[in-house]
């Protein structure tokens, strides 16, 4: 039945569904998990990087964390090539806004502009939708630190803590249990790593499999600091967080 309605994105099925969009969502549910947590003094993004082969050249730059603007970082789940198009668009939109208004673009406005592009591909004919979801960490004067997600349908929503990609439902459950609204950035970082360690296929957490980004505000200058963490820093963070020992202990208990 569905065959008749899923070859083109623009057609609703008799049940009122857009199959291509649902397939895109399905594609994302196999991608590496990405988690975002809003803390009192910043935002944390953590993502699982799927290592496909040992022979693959490990690029020095992050492949799932992207800077969109001075006040925004995003994590990607889904097709990286598709993400590239949207990220370029977002970066250009943010810079164009800065050029006309001499102020940073408000987070939600930038996200809406990206989502307008995503939405376009669910309606205009012939092309497939973007196979990517994003988690955005942002800061602006009006709402301070913010966390958003967006998906291929072009919908976006704000969160205190959220996840996208594989095992998203179990990650969400863990977040719901452990999230506290008065968390500082260090606690949030630890929580993000802990949850990622539980949702990942591989048990051992290290910088080859994890990417990490934070958005904080400088206490001295009041400027927003965006940081996409280097592998060595991630390893140190994993070590300091004690997530590995906790995982070991729990494994022992189960035995």
């Amino acid at each position: 039945m569905s065959r008749r309605y899923d070859s083109r994105t623009t057609i609703f099925s008799p049940e009122g569904r857009l199959y291509q969009v649902e397939y895109a969502l399905e594609a994302i549910s196999h991608a590496g998990t990405a988690i975002g947590i809003l803390a009192e003094d910043g935002v944390v993004l953590a993502a699982e990087k799927k290592v496909t082969s040992k022979l693959l050249e490990q690029d020095t730059s992050a492949e799932k964390m992207y800077l969109l603007n001075d006040n925004m970082v995003c994590a990607v789940a889904g097709m990286n090539a598709d993400a590239g198009i949207l990220i370029n668009h977002a970066r250009y939109t943010a810079q164009q806004y800065l050029k006309t208004y001499n102020e940073d673009i408000p987070c939600e406005q930038l996200i809406r502009r990206v989502c307008d592009v995503k939405q376009g591909y669910t309606q205009h004919g012939g092309l497939r939708p973007f196979g990517v979801s994003f988690i955005y960490a942002g800061y602006d004067d009006r709402y301070e630190f913010q966390l958003f997600t967006s998906n291929p349908s072009g919908n976006y929503s704000g969160w205190k803590a959220t996840s996208i990609g594989a095992n998203t439902s179990s990650a969400q459950t863990l977040l719901k249990n452990d999230y506290k609204s008065d968390m500082k950035i260090s606690e949030a970082s630890k929580l993000a790593l802990k949850i990622l360690s539980k949702t990942m296929d591989a048990s051992l957490l290290n910088s080859e499999k994890v990417e990490f980004a934070t958005l904080t505000k400088s206490k001295t200058t009041g400027k927003v600091i965006h940081k996409i963490w280097k592998p060595a820093e991630i390893d140190q963070l994993i070590k300091d967080s004690g997530v590995l020992e906790e995982a070991e202990k729990e494994a022992e208990k189960e035995q």
Partner: peptide, 16 residues
């Protein structure tokens, strides 16, 4: 100055 700010900011993000 605004144009070159735009272009160099995009350059910085692209080239790291």
């Amino acid at each position: 100055s605004e144009t070159f700010r735009l272009k160099t900011n995009l350059y910085k993000m692209r080239e790291e």
